[in-house]
Simulated assay, not measured.
Amino acid sequence: MKLNYMQCWNGAMAILRDHKEAIIALAGVFVFLPTLLMAQFVGQPALDGTEDFNGITAAYSAFFGENAVSIILSNLLISFGGFVIFFTIAPSHSGTVAEDLGKALRLFLIFLLANILTGLATFAGFLLLVIPGLYVACRLILVPMIIADHGERNPLEALKKSWDRTKDNGFSILLLILIIAIVGAITVGVIQMIIGLITGLATGGAGWPLIENLVSSLGGSALQVLFTVVIGSIYYQLTGQESDVGEIFC
């Protein structure tokens, strides 16, 4: 089955519409809040104009060493929140948000192991140049949906099923993800720039870090939610569930 971009986008918007209350609540608690707290209280590595690779590496190593616990906890919360959303939008979903949280918690270790395996496979692809790495990542993009929809407890089997479901669609998925990522990044960047200019003018150049971090965190959270529902829509389409999806997406 070939991926249809228009159907995929319309499906993603319908998923977002039909599950907006649960998605907003989950993204707000597990994605937006940790991102905002990290931006406000941890910040970014102090590069101080460093341009050489060794200097940048040293700055990031020092930053991680000083903030390892915060970084790990934040990323675990964000990953967990995204994982719960996959349960909420899965075709087999039939419970409440509380039940989705319980299911996600029971399978979270499997999800993390599958992510590690996906990362290793993607890294192996990157060793062959950038495009093969991106291609592998796109062939394995359905792993979290497969775990959520089928309760898959074998990480390798989840990777295998994703690879099978995305057959002949790797580059189509790659192009779609790149388009969304580029347009989304430009949109968020422009909004951040405008907010930065406004706060800079209003404060004589000092800016309002909290307002700027709020906007940045909202933009990043919105992009993550968008990618999640797009992956959900790809899953619906490539697993041949158009009839069920049509009822949901009406």
Rank of each mutant, 00 (worst) to 15 (best):
F87T: 04
A59I: 00
I85A: 03
L101N: 00
S74C: 13
A59G: 01
A90S: 14
L76I: 14
T88V: 15
T88D: 05
D52W: 10
V69P: 04
N67Q: 05
F63D: 11
T57K: 11
G55S: 12
D52S: 11
Y60H: 01
S70G: 01
G55N: 06
V84R: 04
L76K: 12
D100F: 00
A90E: 07
F53E: 14
F53H: 07
N67L: 10
F83L: 11
P91A: 06
A68W: 13
G55K: 04
K103Y: 00
A98Y: 00
F86W: 01
I71W: 11
F87W: 09
P91W: 07
F83T: 09
T88C: 11
L105R: 05
E99I: 13
L105M: 09
V97R: 10
I85L: 02
A59E: 07
T88K: 14
I85V: 15
F108T: 02
F80L: 11
S70L: 11
S79R: 08
A90Q: 10
S70C: 02
L105C: 04
T96P: 01
N67W: 07
F53S: 09
A62M: 03
L109H: 12
V84E: 07
T57C: 03
F83D: 05
N75I: 07
T96I: 12
D100C: 05
L109C: 03
V97Y: 07
F83E: 07
I71H: 08
H93T: 04
K103F: 02
I89K: 07
A59W: 05
H93Q: 09
F83A: 12
V97D: 11
S79L: 13
I89V: 12
I85Q: 08
I78R: 10
K103I: 03
F80Y: 11
L76R: 06
F53K: 04
V69D: 03
G95F: 09
F86D: 09
F83P: 13
H93A: 15
I85W: 01
I78L: 13
F64N: 08
F64P: 03
D100S: 12
H93C: 02
I72F: 10
F53M: 14
G82K: 10
V84P: 05
F87V: 02
T57S: 13
S94T: 13
Y60F: 15
F87E: 09
V97S: 09
Y60N: 08
G82W: 02
A62K: 14
V97T: 15
I72E: 06
I56R: 10
K103E: 01
I72N: 01
L105Q: 09
E66H: 11
F86A: 12
G55P: 11
S70A: 14
L77M: 14
L76Y: 02
V84L: 02
A62F: 00
S61D: 07
I85C: 06
P91F: 08
S94I: 02
G102I: 01
I56Q: 07
A58F: 00
F64M: 15
F111Q: 08
S94N: 15
D52E: 13
